[in-house]
């Protein structure tokens, strides 16, 4: 059944981390690891050789960095790339997305996220790590990265739009419930439906989607990072 498996290549210069990742991917029956690289040059070679479905790559590697490798790989057409970041600053994540990646994972991502990210990106759905804070989400939404086509303005009801705006303003389900006179469970239910409608996996994804589609706008007092 190999043909139906998601073919993955991973690149990271940290051997121990790469081993762990390999083990983790090996646990999943839907994923097949084609090869592993420890630097950007190897990653480019392996990609040209094996044509993987999804590429998982670290950003800082010796020689050719992750970002340079992404640019090189995307020269010949769009690829489904997830970048792994750890200490790398937010600007590097934004740069990676602008260079052609469509997802990113923090190296301290939570249990299950790596697999979720691979499956999401395989379906061409951008993946934003659950560790993303609103600041980074705003920064991404202001960048040149835009995987969304403008959607039908009637896709969301007024009530839903209101909830989206409250979520973007970092309100919890409980707080939203209090504001809109709903139970927390109802809000959670709507939140789940919204994620589905937007085809995003995380709250960060929702914020970026909402800003890119003009459902939510940044308030003039707090333009993210640009003062």
């Amino acid at each position: 059944m190999d043909a139906e498996k998601i073919k993955v290549i991973l690149a990271d210069d940290h051997d121990l981390y790469r081993d762990g990742l390999k083990l983790l991917l090996g646990n999943d029956n839907n994923i097949k690891l084609l090869g592993e690289a420890s630097n950007g040059r190897q990653l480019i070679q392996l990609t040209q050789q094996y044509h993987p479905d999804v590429i998982l790559t670290d950003l800082s590697m010796p020689g050719i960095s992750g970002i340079e490798a992404i640019k090189e790989i995307c020269k010949t057409g769009k690829q489904r790339i997830i970048v792994l970041s750890f200490f790398e600053s937010e600007s590097m994540i934004v740069q990676a997305l602008e260079s052609g990646a469509i997802g990113y994972l923090n190296k301290n991502a939570q249990r299950g996220e790596v697999i979720e990210a691979i499956k999401s990106v395989y379906d061409h759905i951008p993946y934003y790590c659950s560790t993303t804070n609103t600041r980074l989400a705003r920064r991404i939404s202001q960048s040149a990265f835009n995987p969304y086509n403008h959607t039908d303005p009637h896709l969301f009801s007024e009530k839903e739009k209101e909830i989206i705006r409250l979520i973007c303003a970092e309100k919890s389900s409980e707080e939203i419930g209090k504001i809109l006179f709903m139970s927390k469970r109802t809000v959670d239910g709507i939140r789940g439906r919204l994620l589905e409608k937007m085809n995003v996996r995380t709250t960060a994804g929702m914020v970026i989607y909402a800003i890119k589609n003009s459902i939510y706008s940044l308030s003039p007092e707090e333009p993210a990072n640009k003062l």
């Binding site: 940290h14 981390y17 081993d19 762990g20 983790l24 646990n27 301290n108 299950g112």
Partner: peptide, 20 residues
């Protein structure tokens, strides 16, 4: 700290995630 300690800590975490 960045390369060694950070890398190793994340490696430990990913190994823990392999326990199912």
């Amino acid at each position: 700290l960045h390369d060694r300690v950070g890398g190793s800590i994340s490696a430990v975490k990913i190994h823990l995630q392999c326990l199912t």
